[in-house]
Nucleic acid binder design. Sequence first.
DNA 1: GGCAGATTGACAAGTACCTGTCAAAATCGC
DNA 2: GCGATTTTGACAGGTACTTGTCAATCTGCC
Lengths: 147, 147
Amino acid sequence: MTPLSDRGLEFSQLLVEVFRVNGLLLAAGDELAAPAGLTSARWQVLGVVDHGPSTIAQVARTMGLTRQAVRQTATSLVRDGMIVFQDNPHDRRAKLLALPPRGRSALRRVERRQAQWADELAARISLAELRAVTGTLRDLGDLLEDR
Amino acid sequence: MTPLSDRGLEFSQLLVEVFRVNGLLLAAGDELAAPAGLTSARWQVLGVVDHGPSTIAQVARTMGLTRQAVRQTATSLVRDGMIVFQDNPHDRRAKLLALPPRGRSALRRVERRQAQWADELAARISLAELRAVTGTLRDLGDLLEDR
DNA sequence: GGCAGATTGACAAGTACCTGTCAAAATCGC
DNA sequence: GCGATTTTGACAGGTACTTGTCAATCTGCC
């Protein structure tokens, strides 16, 4: 009925696994971030801002999201005191997002937990396998981007 | 600062690739489904119902989502005539979702496009690589599920 | 200096998920 | 058969994204 080749079928199974692992990783990220009062999305924004004060548009470009998405997350972070707006001497429109102590310590807390989590999981998979799967996924990503 | 081992670092790169490929696959799915007036989510629901009339709760279990998510999608599909509710002789609460001709033809159209797309992409990656990456991802998924 | 075009943050509305809650209906235990 | 438990659809509200639009501001060109 759906005339899939052997490869097409194998490929379909890969899709399912990517979706599944993606969902599990997101859930794991939220779990790691929760004790610090964060979520995956909020944590990622803090991570970018940690590299230096940035505008909403800059963070969006770094994360591969739209300005609108970052703005929403940033607004909620400001509301919770995890992030502050600073005036930007170079652009009157685009205020800079910066990390106050409260945001910095929340970020550090999640980073510690994440490092331990990553090490634990990585220890259960051989380095060769890890590299192989990353490489293949990167190729697949490039293929998908080309179209 | 973040005390990641070599493996932990390699693992972090894998995370990034999984997120990237996931996003690209979702976008590709929406593109495949759009000409038939569908989205990835709507298409998936039609795909499940194609196997036989099912209740919202059954579809949710099959897709690994909550009933609430499926209900939302199903409601919009009913609004567009892609799906119809049938009375369920076995349960007065849970009506059955069924595929009228309009939904069936939309589904077939997407399936044809999807099969061609999957074959094209799969042809560019060796079968061995495809199997290896699927296997490793499955192991990783199992690992993540265990915690 | 001044104007065209690009960039930016804000706002609105939509999609796709989630958790929590509720009442109705089905199922299970006795 | 009857009461306790489970399942179900519906509703409310929240998160994390998207596209489209707008006015303010910045930038590049002449």
